[in-house]
C-alpha cells in the first residue's frame, strides 16, 4: 500500500510499489484523463506534475512519488495557469483526436509556471517531448503564446 497525494488529497493505492503512477491512476483509481502512449517516456501523453514539474508518469514508480504532490489533468484547471492554458486550448481549437492533449496541457502549464514569457525556442524545447500524431503543433504554439499573454 502506497499513499500518494493526488490533486491535494491523500490516496492509498493498493499496487506493487514498482507500478508506474500512470497505471495506478488509470487502472486502480479510475482517473483516465492521463493517457498511455508509449510506456517509455518517449511521447509525453502521460505527463503529470510531480511537485509542479512535468513528469512522465509511465516510467515513474509509485515508490518514487510517495508523499509528494501529484497534479493530474483532472485538477490542473483549478490552478490559474492551468486554467489559462486550457482556455487557450479551447479558443485555438487545438485538439484533433485529442488523445495527447492532456499531456500537452500539462507540459505547457509546467512551462508557463516557470517562464511567463516563453520565446518560440523555449516553447519548442519545453514541448519537444510531447508527440502529437495529428499535427496540432502550430495551434499549440499559438495557444501557449495566447495563454502567456492572458497571464501577463
Amino acid at each position: 500500500m502506497t499513499t500518494l497525494n493526488i490533486n491535494g488529497k491523500d490516496v492509498a493505492v493498493d499496487a506493487d510499489p514498482s507500478t508506474p503512477i500512470l497505471w495506478a491512476l488509470r487502472d486502480t483509481l479510475g482517473m483516465t484523463g492521463t493517457k498511455f502512449g508509449c510506456g517509455q517516456a518517449l511521447c509525453g501523453a502521460c505527463t503529470v506534475h510531480l511537485n509542479g514539474a512535468a513528469t512522465r508518469s509511465c516510467v515513474t514508480p509509485l515508490s518514487a512519488a510517495a508523499g509528494q504532490k501529484i497534479t493530474t489533468i483532472e485538477a490542473v484547471g483549478a490552478d490559474r495557469v492551468g486554467r489559462a492554458v486550457q482556455a487557450a486550448w479551447v479558443k485555438h481549437d487545438v485538439a484533433q483526436c485529442g488523445y495527447c492533449q492532456s499531456g500537452q496541457v500539462m507540459s505547457a502549464t509546467a512551462l508557463l509556471k516557470t517562464n511567463r514569457k516563453p520565446s518560440d525556442a523555449d516553447i519548442d524545447a519545453a514541448m519537444a517531448g510531447n508527440v502529437c500524431r495529428c499535427g496540432t503543433y502550430v495551434r499549440i504554439r499559438a495557444a501557449i503564446k495566447d495563454a502567456a499573454s492572458t497571464l501577463a
Binding site: 483516465t32 489533468i73 486550457q86 486550448w89 479551447v90 485529442g98 488523445y99 492532456s102 496541457v105
Partner: peptide
C-alpha cells in the same frame, strides 16, 4: 466553428 469536443479534449474529460 470550434470543435464540439474542444473542452473535454482540453481538460482530460474526453473518453476514448
Amino acid at each position: 466553428t470550434g470543435r464540439l469536443d474542444a473542452v473535454p479534449k482540453s481538460t482530460g474529460q474526453q473518453g476514448y
